[in-house]
Write a protein that binds this DNA or RNA. Sequence first.
DNA 1: CTCCAGGGAGCCT
DNA 2: AGGCTCCATGGA
Length: 305
Amino acid sequence: MESGTIPLSSIPGPFDLQATLESGQTFLWTRADERTYLDPAPREGTDWYRTALDDQVVAVRQTGDALEWRATERDPTEALRDRLRLDDEMAQMLASLPDDPLIDAATAAFPGLRVVDEPFFPTLVSFILSAQMRVERIHSLVQSLGETYGQPLSFGEETVYAFPTPEELAAATERELRDLGLGYRAPYVLESAAMVADGTLSADDIRSLPYEEARTRATEFVGVGEKVADCVLLFSLGFTDPVPLDTWIRSAIEEYVPDIEVTTYRDTSRAIRERFGPYPGIAQTYVFHYLRHREALTAAGRAQQ
DNA sequence: CTCCAGGGAGCCT
DNA sequence: AGGCTCCATGGA
């Protein structure tokens, strides 16, 4: 077992591991203590979060002045920098966001939240599952897929499962996936996994296109409409434009930006991106996380007084 | 019991 | 193109 630290001083701008991994962008990490999302972290830093990363198990936690890591085979620092976008100049990017009351409140509530850059296929499947599903349950199902179809990797005395490859998942049956609890999404996952496995549509096919064309192309996957396509582009393909228009963001537009008429996805997206520029996806990710937790934040604020 | 969840497919006009 | 309806499942 290897171990080491990444000093927070080497990361430009604020960084918040818990907010980054528990804000519904990625469902590939698990908290070692199995507590639920956004339960308070221990005093001396966050809990350990684990994932399978490049054929080894990596665990990270954040302390007062560093990211500590443990890995079964080799130093994962470079991979962590890529996935958690540790090299982004966050202070500069946050300062460049428009001066808007909602964005200001969201960035102030969780400074250090970063938009992740996770692998394409697990992200595609995760957000196919996300249709009409709570964040916590998406996480539970993604973990179940790993435990059922993914490769086991030892982590000390414990076992961590990699997310299944397209081939491994495409070999499942609809009956099995329905028994796992995927419901009507089971055939969507199977068909899209087969499309990736046989090369019908790849991450590179989508990545190379201009944003709106990429979004349309991604909807060729089964179970992927414009909203899910936006999530995949934002959280796994490096696009900074997507503003996934889910129920939270749509209601936020009606409440905070009433002059934007919510019509078609394309036109609403264009209008909100104009307001959220120059990094609409980052602004959206902050706003989504803030909206889902602002009641708790308000309650905590009252408790402190 | 009802209602709802980071929506999308299929079918209708 | 835009508007319906149905879709599984679990938790509040």
